[in-house]
Amino acid sequence: MSNLPLIRCYEASIHRGDRCLIADLDWSVNAGELWQVTGDNGTGKTSLLRVLAGLAPNGLVGQCERDGVALYLGHRNGVKADFSPRENLSLNLGSHARFSSKEMDRALEIVGLGHYLDEPAYRLSAGQQRRIGLARLFLPSPRLWILDEPLTAIDVSGVSLIEACVNDQIQRGGAVIFTSHQPLASGTLQRLHLSAGRGVVQRV
């Protein structure tokens, strides 16, 4: 496994349209690190994550390199209401890999959808639909995860589930970057705080 940082930003500025949201960001994310990006609304959390995931190449001035593909889950995580949870995973466009049906059923069982495998997603609640998206975290995945507000519409048991799998990913030598207004319980949590157009690294 290479020791290269998974993300390396050097004098990076993040723009949205004509506005500069974050200036001169020097930041790197290494294997085994868990990062929470914090900041008030409109400080550029989502824009930063989208640039890191490669969704907004024009929003970046400066250098920002990513080693390999990342798993990105945004506000909207690509769950089709007309598909069942099973179909949502097997026809998922977000992953290169082909998952076996065993792997997929197991992931759906972990997130608590074991009884609804073939139920159309529009019959499930908003929280359950989000859980279909989060089932991706329990399937074989790239080393870097970029999660934008993964805890939205998730109940307490769901939060601890996500905490456990994020910690697993860190132990495996992966790295996780997420935004959230609540922290995840983990020994290694580090914080990148965005305010007044700058990103400041805070140790927790």
Binding site: A53, L55, V69, L71, Y72, G74, N77, L93, G94, H96
Partner: peptide, 21 residues
């Protein structure tokens, strides 16, 4: 639909060939 529910985001970040998609 795929734009609104985030499927296209997933597709672009997955590293799939966008040409064939």
């Amino acid at each position: 639909g795929d734009y609104d529910d985030g499927t296209l985001e997933q597709l672009v970040t997955s590293g799939h060939s966008l040409y064939f998609a």
